[in-house]
Amino acid sequence: MSALGELRSMKRTGDGASPAASRGRKQNRAAFLFLLPWFLGLFLITIGPMAASLVLSFTRYNLLSPPRFNGIDNIVRMLEDGRLHKSIEVTFQYVFISVPLQLALALLLAVVLDRGLRGLSFYRSAFYLPSLLGASVAIAMLWRQIFGVDGLVNQVLAFFGIEGQGWISSPDTALGTLMILNVWTFGSPMVIFLAGLRQIPVMYYEAASVDGAGRWQQFWRITMPMLTPIIFFNLILQIIGAFQSFTQAYIVSGGTGGPIDSTLFYTLYLYDRGFANLDMGYASAMAWLLLVIIAAFTALNFWASKYWVFYDDQD
Rank of each mutant, 00 (worst) to 15 (best):
K306F: 07
Q199A: 14
W38V: 15
L227R: 05
A104L: 14
T223N: 07
L268Y: 04
L181N: 01
G41A: 15
V111S: 07
G257N: 02
G212R: 11
L107S: 06
A31H: 10
E163S: 14
N154L: 02
W38T: 15
S125D: 04
V202C: 00
Q27T: 14
Q218N: 11
S87I: 03
A283M: 03
G255S: 04
V95Q: 01
R198Y: 06
A287H: 00
R118H: 03
F193I: 07
D261H: 06
N182T: 09
S188I: 03
I75Q: 12
N277Y: 11
I294F: 03
S2D: 08
L268Q: 00
G214Q: 06
Q217P: 10
L101V: 13
F32C: 09
F297L: 11
K86W: 04
D279I: 00
L133I: 14
A283E: 02
Y266A: 08
L44E: 11
L264C: 05
I231H: 01
Y123I: 00
F159S: 05
G212L: 10
F297D: 01
V137S: 07
L120E: 14
L108G: 11
G187D: 10
A287T: 11
M10Q: 12
G187P: 03
R60G: 09
H85G: 09
V95P: 00
R198H: 09
L175T: 01
I236D: 06
P19H: 07
R115N: 08
M50S: 14
Y266M: 04
L108Q: 02
I97G: 01
N62F: 08
P130E: 03
N301A: 06
A299G: 10
Y266G: 02
S262K: 08
I168Q: 03
W308Q: 08
G5D: 14
V137M: 05
M141E: 04
F34Q: 13
M1W: 04
A299K: 05
N234Q: 11
R68M: 13
L44A: 15
L7N: 07
L289H: 01
K86N: 13
Y266W: 03
L40K: 05
I236Q: 13
S53N: 14
V292E: 00
A17N: 11
A20V: 12
L54C: 04
G254R: 02
L64P: 02
V90G: 10
A213Q: 12
L105A: 09
P100G: 09
D272N: 13
A195L: 02
Y282G: 01
L7S: 12
H85F: 13
F233G: 04
T223F: 07
F69A: 14
G161T: 07
F246V: 02
L113H: 07
W216C: 10
D261C: 01
S245C: 11
I47A: 15
L113M: 09
L235S: 11
H85Q: 13
D81T: 08
K11H: 10
T228P: 03
N28S: 15
A213L: 10
S209L: 12
I162A: 02
L113A: 06
Y123P: 00
R273D: 00
R12Q: 14
S125K: 09
I72G: 06
P66I: 07
W184L: 02
V149T: 10
F32T: 09
A287G: 14
A207F: 04
V112R: 01
L105V: 15
D272W: 00
L142D: 01
L44H: 12
Q199G: 09
A135Y: 07
L278W: 12
F159Q: 11
G14N: 08
G24R: 15
